[in-house]
């Protein structure tokens, strides 16, 4: 049952978006976030929406998946819109009952915020949907590599992330095994009150941690045997090469950002 968990929610594919250089994708995503937050009217948001849905269409991932990505944040969205709705006192009052006062400005602000957040989630999901976690880690390592000059452990961080990703399925399998073993000994993991289940979780976590430490020890020895000595002088099998399409995608994104800035100033 734990095996079904997917990490990073990557949808393999071969669309233009999938094939973009991951380094560019990260930069584009950052520009995209800036774009959504600079625009402060609905026209800017419309431009952002065109960009988002255009990219989604190009990725050939069903739109349904993007709505799913918003779902876990549904409560957060409701709270955001309620706060904006209830506490915005500027503008004409549309509705008043006891202490509740809803103004037209409150209504537009809350709609604006909700749309902005939904676009933000959908757009950033596109990055994780079209880029495998390991490629993403790789791209982050390379983007951050200038920080090495100020002694920031970029390579070590990326290595830790990629090993974590590598061992997630292994540890999930192990958790499954330990759970079965503890159930066979009569531990109540799926049943019983919350307190009982929480207490029984310890009987899973302790063996899991012990085994993880042992694995770490063995892996470190195996890495040493294969001449691992940090990031210095390393070459890579996975080559990242930027193609013309990466620069085009970046240019298009910058154009959209410019449009949003101009529209924000004009209206």
């Amino acid at each position: 049952m734990l095996r079904d968990i997917t990490i990073g929610q990557y949808f393999p594919g071969n669309s233009v978006i999938h094939r973009l250089d991951p380094r560019f994708k990260i930069i584009i995503t950052i520009i995209y976030i800036v774009m959504l937050f600079t625009g402060d009217n609905f026209l800017c948001l419309a431009v952002g929406a065109v960009f988002t849905f255009g990219a989604i269409l190009l990725s050939r991932i069903p739109l349904k998946m993007f709505f799913k990505s918003v779902k876990p944040l549904f409560i957060f969205l409701i709270i955001t819109s309620l706060i904006n709705l209830l506490f915005m006192s500027r503008g004409d009052v549309l509705f008043e009952w006891k202490f509740i006062k809803i103004t037209d400005e409150g209504l537009t602000t809350s709609a604006f915020m909700v749309i902005r957040i939904v676009l933000l989630i959908m757009g950033t999901s596109l990055l994780t949907y079209t880029t495998s976690p390991i490629t993403l880690t790789d791209a982050i390592e390379r983007l951050l590599s200038p920080l090495r000059k100020i002694k920031f452990p970029v390579h070590e961080l990326a290595m830790m992330m990629s090993i974590a990703l590598r061992f997630i399925p292994t540890l999930i399998e192990e958790t499954d095994k330990i759970m079965s073993a503890q159930k066979a000994r009569g531990a109540e993991i799926d049943t019983g009150s919350f307190a009982v289940r929480a207490k029984n979780l310890v009987s899973i976590l302790v063996p899991l941690f012990i085994s993880a430490f042992r694995r770490a020890d063995e892996l470190a020895t195996a890495m040493e045997c294969r001449c691992y000595h940090g990031g210095e002088g390393r070459t890579r099998l996975r080559q990242l090469r930027s193609a013309p399409r990466d620069y085009i995608a970046l240019a298009v994104t910058v154009l959209f950002l410019a449009a949003v800035i101009v529209l924000g100033k004009l209206f």
């Binding site: 390991i134 090993i163 892996l219 195996a222 294969r226 001449c227 691992y228 070459t235 099998l237």
Partner: peptide, 23 residues
């Protein structure tokens, strides 16, 4: 406990990457 990478071919390349073998 001795496979480092999430992709088979990258794991095989691990030692070569460490030794700085050209692409």
């Amino acid at each position: 406990n001795q496979i480092v990478s999430s992709v088979v071919e990258e794991d095989v390349a691990f030692a070569l990457e460490n030794l700085g073998v050209p692409y």
